[in-house]
Design a protein around this nucleic acid. Structure first.
Lengths: 230, 230
DNA sequence: GGTTGTGAAGTAATTCACAGCT
DNA sequence: AGCTGTGAATTACTTCACAACC
């Protein structure tokens, strides 16, 4: 009888806003590093490439943290955004697949920075087991369930070939992981309640190719007929 | 005097649709590999994780390629989507930055598949120059302009550390590249007419952390007070 | 004077629901 | 009978423009 689960709709922040908060956060950290104390929506918007009204509306969803006539205090805003994003606590991440991509991810500075901790690197390939990558020893995929439980992993990163991705995902989910970041070029199937985000190189390239083609067709030629293939 | 460039707005396909076409395309190729000849919007929607009405509307922007009562012919739809995305021609790609990420990208199968050709791998670090990666010899960054001109590069991929990204981007743009795919965690500045897409691991993690925190706050506790930190 | 926060207006994307074709 | 293609309705997001405040 339960109606078709209208999702407990975020009593809060629009998804589009959530996706921009990390961008603001990074820009703010840059300002902080340079010792800048306050910033206006106009300035912060410019450095992050958004419209200033949008930035103000985004921030207004978190609360009223600016000062009229002055702007936003950089450190305070960093704290508020971090808190909203859940970065004031540490999240354990497990990376499965230690090929070039997995290594790139493991060595990526962004992990080390506040908020994330790599709990384990796992792979099925015996030839990389025991390798040390980013200070961690690569473990066997069979230990996935143990690692998730023991290290309290909440985010699983899939950097395996496409063919293994769904299986790894299933194991993550079965072990209790509810957030997955997928680099394999497949659509993952997960039960409700599990969030999946995907990063897909070839999709990005194809989107660029589309626009590139548009530029070639449309502008350069100034051909009013455009579309026609012949 | 030119007004603030209201962008020659695509006389066509919504951006949200463009971003999904590659997903449909991949699913269709999977069906084709399995010898499946036709597919309904319902079925294709299910395997790509979208609503079937959305899928039909997306496809309707390309033309009327289905058959009522039957569905879509798989091969024909593959061809039409490929054509729309500009994949019936080959695009030359240059990758700058041959660390783990650059290597992962170079070896990524998605490139090889129809539509993209890696024209060059470039790096500033003398220690990797001349290395062979994915069958290509790594060249020096100073040859960027030559390579872009000679190989007719239309998409530049930036896989360098953050600090070098803007400079590499400027050189790409100066050399005539109008599409950039950026993996470095910085907001790139480009003139109008140049498309930039970014892929940013830490943004994805932070978005997941946000939702993870929501799940922890909201559901598990069933605490009606939620928000308050103490 | 300067800048935020936000209703109201405008634009884009999604979903519904069904006419129209096979 | 089955499935597409699409107007109409809905929902989400963006931008404008200005009152409120420092």
């Amino acid at each position: 009888m339960t109606p078709p689960a209208p999702r407990p709709r975020d009593r809060g922040i629009p998804e589009a806003t959530v996706a921009r908060l990390p961008v603001y956060l990074r820009a703010l950290q840059g300002l902080d590093d340079r010792g800048i104390l306050t910033v206006s929506s106009e300035h912060l918007a410019e450095t992050t490439g958004v419209n200033s009204a949008k930035l103000r509306k985004d921030l207004s969803h978190l609360g009223s943290y600016g000062t009229r006539g002055v702007g936003y205090e950089v450190e305070y805003l960093i704290y508020q955004i971090s808190r909203e994003l859940g970065l004031t606590q540490d999240w354990s991440v497990a990376i499965v697949g230690v090929g070039n991509l997995g290594r790139a991810l493991a060595n990526y500075g962004g992990f080390g920075t506040r908020g994330f901790r790599i709990a384990a690197l796992l792979d099925a390939d015996a030839s990389v087991l025991g390798d040390t990558v980013a200070g961690l020893s690569v473990g066997h995929i069979d230990t996935l369930e143990d690692v998730v439980a023991k290290e309290n992993v909440s985010i699983g990163v899939i950097a395996t070939p496409a063919v293994s991705a769904q299986e790894v995902c299933d194991r993550f989910v079965e072990a209790g992981v509810t957030s997955v970041l997928n680099f394999a070029p497949v659509v993952l199937n997960v039960p409700p309640g599990v969030d999946v985000r995907k990063v897909d190189l070839s999709i990005e390239l194809q989107i660029l190719a589309f626009h590139e083609q548009r530029k070639a067709d449309g502008y350069a030629g100034l051909d009013p007929f455009g579309k026609g293939p012949a």
